Simulated assay, not measured.
Amino acid sequence: MDHIPRLSEAVYVGLCRKIGSPTEVRMRREVTDTEEVVRQSVKIMKGFDRMMSGSRREGFRLVASDHDCMFWLPGHKVICYLSQVSLYRIPRHTVILMESDDLPPGFTRLNLMSPSNDVKVRSSCVAINNSVYISSTLFRDNHLLFLRTWNFASLSNPHAPCVHCVFCFRSHHWPAKALPWIQRCRQQGWPSEVVISDILSAGFHVVPIGSTPESSQEWRISFSCAEQKLVYAMNRCQFLCYGLFKTFLKEVINFHDNLPVLCSYFTKTAVLWVIQTNNFLTWTPENLLPCFWECFKLHVLIHWVFTGECPTFLFHSIICSDIN
């Protein structure tokens, strides 16, 4: 086993060349963050706020690194509790209430509590039991048509949380079902309180994807912004381990498959779980390969493959006991 540290260090050096030095990754992130601020002021799409996400936002420049964007109407406010209506000014703000009863974990319905001045939102509404709900299917279809009208080459993918371009809604609050994540972080000591505070203040998004193709009223709760901040919070070895996992996925696991058995989101979630829950790992260059192996042999990873569903790191705590 004496050769493992030397081999790990050699792989570490190779990954630095392939993925980029610490300075290169930091500069990529800073440029992307600055670009986001500038684009917000320019408003590429009139009336929309936007956020870049995906591998390129995280600092990767691999061949398959995706470049995703999320767009939302800033005047439409998603709330988690009815009492939060008082935080906003109607009709200046359109208030949307999340309702998650009797839905799969991580999904919600959107109850339109006040009128919307956006024609695409209004045309996406359906009446159910004397209430007005925003249909995720109609919303997605309306915006796909909008993208085609604007001649956008990359369109939303209904089978992924965010691929290329997605229109969604944003909430500046924090859902009750994700509160255990905060306690879990504090118990495990990762990430830091500063990162936790930053994540909570950024809120979350709801994207027009149901748990099944027939679930036209369901919306998926997305923590894309929070996950990006968690990747930023990784140390150098952790980030390279994540990059190694992505590379191994692309060049080995899915190399000959037209229908990949794993997606990069699975790998990121696995790495985040191992970082947070495995207190025995030492994330250093000479220990890179053992760290990668711990991520690769994560017990629940096989379960995710068979079910085709990867639980969101910030929303689910039920798999914690399965990891150790």
Score class of each variant (00 low, 15 high):
16 C>F: 01
254 N>E: 03
267 T>V: 12
96 I>H: 05
39 R>E: 05
253 I>M: 11
35 E>G: 14
86 S>D: 11
230 L>I: 06
48 F>R: 10
125 C>W: 05
142 N>W: 07
156 S>T: 12
125 C>M: 15
104 P>D: 03
171 S>W: 12
261 V>N: 06
268 K>G: 03
276 Q>T: 01
183 Q>F: 02
212 T>P: 00
225 C>Y: 04
200 L>T: 07
311 P>A: 08
321 S>M: 04
248 F>D: 01
266 F>W: 04
32 T>P: 00
13 V>S: 07
237 C>E: 04
217 Q>C: 08
188 Q>T: 13
290 P>E: 07
118 D>P: 00
273 W>E: 01
266 F>D: 13
186 R>E: 05
25 V>L: 10
137 T>F: 07
163 V>S: 14
224 S>V: 15
199 I>P: 00
130 N>T: 11
230 L>C: 07
128 I>E: 11
200 L>N: 03
154 S>G: 10
61 R>C: 08
246 K>L: 14
206 V>L: 11
190 W>G: 01
199 I>A: 07
174 W>N: 06
297 K>F: 10
321 S>V: 04
222 S>N: 15
294 E>C: 07
133 Y>P: 01
249 L>A: 05
163 V>Q: 14
10 A>Q: 06
21 S>F: 08
243 G>I: 04
320 C>H: 10
171 S>C: 12
308 G>K: 08
199 I>Q: 02
288 L>K: 06
171 S>E: 06
168 C>I: 06
204 F>H: 10
75 G>V: 05
262 L>W: 06
106 G>E: 08
198 D>F: 05
46 K>Y: 06
58 E>M: 15
186 R>M: 05
186 R>T: 02
257 D>P: 00
235 N>H: 08
224 S>G: 15
81 Y>K: 15
163 V>M: 09
112 L>D: 02
151 N>V: 09
91 P>I: 09
174 W>F: 14
70 M>Y: 08
51 M>D: 01
270 A>P: 00
46 K>L: 05
249 L>S: 09
91 P>M: 14
202 A>Q: 14
102 D>I: 01
17 R>F: 04
21 S>I: 11
31 V>K: 10
82 L>M: 12
263 C>W: 04
105 P>F: 11
13 V>K: 10
297 K>D: 02
127 A>K: 13
226 A>Y: 01
16 C>P: 00
140 R>P: 00
